[in-house]
Amino acid sequence: MLEARKLSLWRGANCLFQDLSFEVPPGNALLVRGANGTGKTTLLRVLCGLTRPEDGRVCWNGVNIEKEPEIYRSQLAYWGHLGGLKADLTVLRNLQFICRLNGLDEAAVQPVVTALSLDRCADLPVRHLSAGQKRRAGLAGLLLSTAGLWIMDEPFTNMDDNGKELLRQKLKQHLDRQGIAIVAAHHELDIPGHTLQRLTLGAGQ
């Protein structure tokens, strides 16, 4: 279970959020909404432990993530808008690296590549991919982790209809496995068979 307890963060004189608390139990997803510049990405970075909140804390299964960061990080997969792939390396090489780092066998790469229809561009350097293909490659990286908590920043950006549907399916499978997902998005998200918690930033704060 992921908990946020009374999180507060200021950027200069701007209060992004104050006394923000929520709980996301296993098998649930939290949809973070809000206009541009209301702190969605910052909130996700706080949940990842990349940015420290000014006040409050984030707890994983009741333990502050700053106390036992290794346990939390082994359960965490973050898919930010930067993607995290090396532009000079091929999709395949990027994914093989993720596999090695996650302690998985490299044979796990091929099924994921096929499932995301990345076969044709698997041997191309990431810099030659289209924006949508880059997003798919990023998603492939996420699927190669064994993490129980997915934190995604605007995952639907640049995705075509087919990609969006695929992502929705993968999210559903993840929640069915009792995973947790935190998704920041501009638009509505429906996952069949699951009710989403919602959080809107920048409204009346």
Binding site: C48, G49, L50, E70, R73, S74, L76, Y78, G80, H81, L82, G83, G84, L85, K86, A87, L101
Partner: peptide, 13 residues
């Protein structure tokens, strides 16, 4: 710039 550092920083290693 390409985000691979933040992946390593939030990784368990």
């Amino acid at each position: 710039e390409d985000g691979s550092m933040e992946q390593l920083v939030i990784g368990p290693h």
